[in-house]
């Protein structure tokens, strides 16, 4: 970044009345952050050249020979590409839809609970799962689905109470998109409801009073006043979620599925696939190619999301 010497003295706005020494001091203040961005955010972008190389550790990132698009071809020919791209988008769509719906319903219902302490208590309770680490979630899920040593588990014991057959969940690939969605609702339902509740509290009380005079029930008010007024918030969250559509939730999925290959057909997303190829096969070139493919398509999603958001809801845009 170039530093242009600012004009000294008071120039226009009082905020701009800065000597070049002051600017330098402030730039120094930002220096650790700038250095971090250069190394950890922009450095890896340069490293993407690996995607076009037959990488080996000895020759390093820049010394390894070029091999054109071979890495990309290899990935697209492998047959995994379609599966993991589909899983990534499909799972993200499920997660987004379910957690937004749960958050919205919870917020509407929390809003009906008038007793202050009970409401605050429940809010704390349903918000807590957001802070539970993926690894801990994975351990809880094992207890519920299969018991610690693969014996029964809570769900299976409940199934046997109503005379249904036991299910070996960890070999049942078809069930996992739904199991993971329930995990996501558990993890994010409360968090999302906090966002919606914040928006609800900004709705003027007068609207509800007017509706009450007209004899509307609380349910009617929730449906005809609160929900429509929450739509902008909802739209922003949808747009943000769509922007992240191409990036899998690596932590939660990998912590739960680990290296259980039986579940890959329905749970393997780009991020877990990349991680495994890197760690197990050590194929840097192909893995980097997949990463680049993900970043580029992901960028299109994010950029589109940002544009849509700025178009329709400028005040909530980050920039």
């Amino acid at each position: 970044m170039t530093v242009t010497k600012p004009r000294a003295g008071r120039a226009g706005s009082r905020r701009h009345g800065l000597s070049s020494r002051d600017s330098l001091v402030l730039l120094l203040l930002a220096l650790p952050g700038i250095a971090w961005f250069l190394v950890f955010a922009y450095g890896p972008m340069v490293g993407l050249v690996v995607a076009f190389k037959a990488f080996n550790i000895r020759d390093g990132i820049f010394g390894s020979p070029w091999n054109g698009l071979a890495n990309f071809r290899y990935f697209l020919m492998s047959g995994d590409a379609a599966t993991i791209v589909f899983n990534t988008v499909f799972l993200n769509a499920l997660f987004l839809g379910a957690s937004l719906f749960a958050g919205l319903v919870l917020a509407l219902m929390l809003n009906e609970i008038r007793g202050g302490p009970y409401r605050r208590f429940m809010q704390s309770v349903i918000f807590f799962p957001y802070f539970v680490s993926p690894i801990v979630i994975s351990i809880m899920l094992q207890v519920i689905l299969s018991g610690v040593g693969g014996r029964g588990g809570l769900v299976n014991n409940l199934l046997s109470v109503v005379d249904l057959p036991q299910v070996s969940w960890y070999t049942e690939a078809g069930a996992w998109p739904w199991i993971l969605t329930i995990v996501k609702v558990w993890q994010l339902g409360g968090y999302t409801s906090v966002i919606f509740l914040a928006a609800i509290t900004s709705i003027s009380e007068e609207v509800y009073e007017a509706a009450a005079i007209d004899g509307a029930s609380r349910w009617r008010m929730a449906l005809s006043i609160t929900v429509p007024l929450l739509l902008p918030t909802f739209a922003v969250l949808v747009v943000l979620g769509v922007g992240r559509m191409f990036f899998g939730d690596f932590a939660t999925i990998y912590a739960i599925v680990q290296d259980n290959g039986v579940l890959f057909p329905t749970t393997d997303v780009i991020d877990t696939y990349v991680f495994r190829s890197l760690r197990m096969i050590g194929d840097f070139g192909t893995t980097a190619a997949i990463g680049l493919f993900q970043s580029v398509v992901g960028f299109v999603f994010v950029a589109a999301a940002v544009l849509v958001q700025r178009r329709f809801h400028k005040e909530s845009s980050i920039l």
Binding site: M1, V3, T4, P6, R15, H16, L18, S23, L26, L27, A30, G33, I34, F37, V39, F40, A41, Y42, G43, P44, M45, V46, G47, L48, V50, A51, I61, D271, V274, F275, L278, F284, T287, A288, I290, G291, L292, Q294, S295, G298, F299, V302, A303, V306, I318, L319
Partner: peptide, 29 residues
């Protein structure tokens, strides 16, 4: 809101939210 500093810095910090190098270059780094 410093002239010539704050705006470029905003972009500088914003771009990584849109695009990143992915796992392999990060691992090698």
């Amino acid at each position: 809101r410093l002239p010539f500093i704050s705006r470029p810095l905003t972009m500088f910090a914003y771009v990584p939210m849109l695009f990143n190098g992915g796992l392999v270059p990060f691992y090698l780094l």
